[in-house]
């Protein structure tokens, strides 16, 4: 564990708490893409098939939290606050993302086993899971401030992981190409968002696309 990775994981936790706060406080999931949240649930379930493999208490508890919270968010959006979800705003075709990630995982993986291919699939899928949410944002052209805080924490989490990988490469000679490439793409997808968040939200304005 190092500073960057711990901070990244805490940002990831924070992003989920901010999302839960947004839904509970406004009693609405408007502005949140159900498709993105569904993809995250798929990501966690397919990645943490090794849940019973012991690495540390920290590792196990975080895995349980990510799986449970992602499924709870699906419940909130699909059942508890269903009336506040507008599917006509959430029109990104996730079939293509799922298909492309599965194909990539079948071709580019470390070893061709069931668990390993699903793990690789989850890494690729996480990289692009935010696209339905960003697409929704670009369609509506604006977002509630708390939703942008959620997105910022989520993007910062991945950005910090890049620093963690650089750190681990120099201190432990840790190399993981699949995770590095997917993580770099995932962070890059946030660049436009980060720019507008910095220009507008951090200066006290509403998040609106130019």
């Amino acid at each position: 564990m190092n500073f960057f990775r711990l901070t990244a994981d805490l940002m990831h936790l924070l992003s989920i708490f901010v999302l839960l706060l947004k839904i509970q406080k406004t009693r609405s999931c408007s502005g949140i893409s159900f498709k993105t949240q569904l993809l995250y649930a798929v990501v966690f379930v397919t990645r943490y098939l090794d849940l019973l493999k012991w690495i540390s208490l920290y590792n196990t508890l975080m895995k349980i939290f990510f799986i449970a919270s992602s499924i709870y968010i699906l419940y909130l959006m699909k059942i508890k606050f269903r009336a506040t979800y507008d599917p006509s705003q959430d029109t990104f075709r996730i079939e293509f993302l799922l298909g492309a990630c599965l194909l990539l995982a079948l071709v580019f993986n470390y070893t061709f086993t069931f668990i390993e291919v699903l793990w690789t699939f989850s890494i690729y899928l996480e990289a692009v899971a935010i696209l339905p949410q960003l697409f929704m944002l670009s369609r509506t052209g604006e977002a509630e401030t708390i939703t942008t805080h959620y997105l910022f924490a989520l993007g910062a989490y991945r950005g910090l992981y890049l620093l963690n990988w650089i750190w681990r490469f120099y201190t432990e000679h840790h190399i993981d190409w699949i995770v590095w490439v997917a993580g770099a793409i995932q962070t890059a997808l946030y660049s436009d968002f980060f720019y507008i968040y910095y220009k507008k939200v951090l200066h006290g304005q509403k998040f609106e696309l130019p």
Partner: peptide
């Protein structure tokens, strides 16, 4: 012998 990267990250 090739070893898989250790999966200790989340």
């Amino acid at each position: 012998e090739y070893k898989l990267p250790i999966k200790d990250e989340l």
